[in-house]
Design a protein around this nucleic acid. Structure first.
Lengths: 223, 223
DNA sequence: ACCTGAACACCGTTCAAGT
DNA sequence: ACCTGAACACCGTTCAAGT
């Protein structure tokens, strides 16, 4: 007999092995050894299957730290979220698409973030704003970093590289001066994703920017 | 005779009117009055059509400001990106998915951002990190804010609301204490997206967090 | 060069019917 | 309650053939 748990586990396994493009209810049903319509009895839509998969992937992101230490707590949340996606990089596009649309999400994580932000001094409407900023930050970098490139077709990679090499130094001086550092290491200018070329340093700065900015905001409530 | 420009314009119009789910090459071809395979002569894959649509949507996000005023410039980029998506909210999911995967993107925007960041004092590897942080920030909030909710089915909205109302005050004290402010105004806790309920204040704070954090980073190069 | 027209190999979802 | 089996209304992409 099927269960929501086995469906979800097999779905995640399918995505891990074959990629998000192969994640169809028909392939999932085949992997489960049932007809596609059998899955619908437990999860009546594909989006719900995806949401369940994401809950599985993000199961343990809520860190085991006292939220009062708000900087450490938020840093840990960001790091652990990225690590979770790194363990299942093919789910990366679902992070932006589903976390946000998923009200079955883990309220424990939300509570932890809200705790940390109130410990940082945010309350009322500004707590809402700080929360939204945190969720947006949590999702933004990691989704992109590990999202698939246009097909991993070799011709596309060559084409991308040659387009970069043709960049005019007079029209785009700063870009072309730093091209060797940016090539394949920067969003929009890369041809491999975070699975092949992780952007560890950039992610570190990204987090520190957020933490430092948050601290500044709490000290300067008025804009 | 078809052109890439008319295909792209009609595709954007289709997405604006009917939503991203109705954006298929078959519907696009019907709107153009041709067979689906005719489109392939100009744009040989659906992803390329989507990328072209995104270039159209983001055509004018590069602001008309001197990048030396780096704070004003980056603020303007973020605001104008959000405004562009607000004009075509159904394209929101493509922002995260395509901008990052699109090497046909506008190098002018990239150059502008790099200019602003060097004016802020970043260079070398730290310029790369600051750039990646900027792109991630640019995309993160807006993609989520305007991405579609699970189906706009009324039953789903009711279900979401009732799940929020059932949150245990003892398990989730901070969450339930602020629930009235968070309800439908915060990521994961809302049932309508930015088209119905724009998160203007949160976006403002999000930007200011980034700018303030960036300024802090430039002053404290070492972590 | 540009497009028709048909085909291939898929989809998500629904629904009657079985057990 | 749980699943089969078939059907419905779609997909993106390919390819020979026309002009």
């Amino acid at each position: 007999m099927l269960t929501e748990a086995t469906i979800t586990a097999v779905a995640l396994d399918l995505i891990d092995r074959e990629g998000l493009e192969k994640f169809s209810l028909r392939n999932l049903a085949a992997a489960l050894g049932v007809y596609p319509s059998a899955v619908y009895w437990y999860l009546p839509t594909k989006d719900l299957v995806a949401a369940a998969v994401m809950n599985l992937v993000l199961r343990d992101v809520a860190p085991d730290i006292e939220p009062k230490a708000w900087k450490d707590y938020l840093r840990a949340v960001m790091l652990r979220c990225r690590q979770a996606i790194q363990r299942h990089p093919n789910t990366a596009p679902l992070l932006g698409a589903q976390l946000t649309a998923n009200t079955r999400a883990d309220f424990g994580l939300i509570e932890g973030i809200l705790c940390a932000l109130s410990a940082a001094g945010f309350e009322g409407p500004r707590l809402v704003d700080a929360y939204n900023s945190t969720i947006a930050t949590l999702v933004g970098f990691t989704t992109q970093e590990f999202s698939p490139m246009p097909d991993s077709g070799e011709d596309w990679q060559k084409e991308t590289q040659s387009r970069l090499d043709e960049i005019s130094p007079v029209d785009y001086p700063v870009l072309s001066r730093n091209l060797s550092l940016l090539k394949n290491q920067a969003f929009i200018l890369r041809w491999e994703n975070g699975v092949r070329v992780a952007l560890d340093n950039s992610f570190d700065m990204y987090i520190e920017i957020f933490i430092a900015g948050l601290e500044k905001m709490k000290k300067a409530p008025a804009k």
